[in-house]
């Protein structure tokens, strides 16, 4: 049995975690692979500024640092910001799959140009960062927002009637006005809209979370992992320091919430 850790980028209880775990239903992983969702213990309130992104990087590294030692075979990061991916790849030899980079590359296997649908404009920086790193700004037809404040715990539940039509309208503009041939949901927290939107829009729509699970599975089958030439191991790993920083952050959250 292959074990995959899915790092969830906000601290949360079981009820909220179940809405993240529901992403599993969107993909047939076959037998022989199991997913273990692990929320971070520290981090920002949401992903709305560079302040948050710095904390997010750290929080995900803190959660995944020991994945290999704990017997996991691969690790997926449950956020389109790819927070922590580069750091974890430098520390771990097992595949570390993050949805932003991977969905932008897979989109180009299905069409030439893609657009990204986001809940609000605050997320724009998440995608421009990855597009810049990939050097593929010219492959992105547009980034469109529906102007709805996201909720990283309740996701879209209870807001379907409001949010789904807005997403469809923005998706149509991406296709008709911007020339997108493939769409990417801008957050793994938008997965509840995937089936509804795909049935109506007429171009492929990438559901980024489930995509990472399948890519983790095939990376294991192909015996491939990230290049150490791109993600060199640290000369002086600070494992204990990272753990101490994470614990102190968790204690602060506990005391202040």
């Amino acid at each position: 049995m292959k074990k995959v850790m899915v790092v969830v980028p906000f601290p949360m209880g079981e009820g909220d975690l179940a809405r993240r775990q529901a992403q599993m239903k969107a993909v047939d992983l076959g037998p022989g692979i199991e997913l273990h969702y692990r929320p971070v213990r520290v981090g920002p309130k949401n992903y709305s500024s560079q302040h948050d992104m710095s904390l997010a990087d750290f929080s995900i590294v803190d959660a995944g640092l020991d994945a290999e030692a704990e017997g996991f075979d691969a690790l997926c990061i449950d956020t389109m910001s790819d927070s922590g991916m580069a750091m974890l790849r430098s520390i771990l030899k097992i595949p570390v799959i993050a949805p932003g980079r991977h969905s932008m590359l897979i989109a180009q296997m299905l069409g030439e140009k893609f657009s990204i649908l986001m809940m609000w404009d605050r997320w724009r920086m998440l995608y421009t960062k990855t597009l810049g790193e990939l050097g593929m700004e010219h492959k992105c037809a547009s980034l469109r927002s529906i102007g709805v404040t996201p909720d990283n715990k309740s996701l879209l539940s209870g807001k379907e009637d409001e949010v789904f039509p807005l997403l469809l309208d923005a998706a149509r503009r991406c296709v008709e006005e911007d020339g997108a041939q493939v769409l990417i949901l801008g957050s793994t927290t938008m997965h509840e809209a995937h089936g509804w939107l795909s049935e109506r829009i007429g171009v492929p729509v990438i559901n980024p979370g489930p995509l990472t699970y399948k890519l983790a599975a095939i990376a294991l089958d192909l015996n491939l992992t990230h290049s150490k030439a791109t993600y060199p191991a640290p000369l002086a790993p600070k494992h204990d320091m990272i753990r101490a920083i994470g614990a102190a952050g968790a204690a602060w959250l506990e005391a202040n919430q």
């Binding site: 969107a26 299905l110 069409g111 296709v175 041939q181 492929p204 559901n207 399948k214």
Partner: peptide
Amino acid sequence: ALGLSHGRD
């Protein structure tokens, strides 16, 4: 597994 194929556009 994901129900994806190339776009007809």
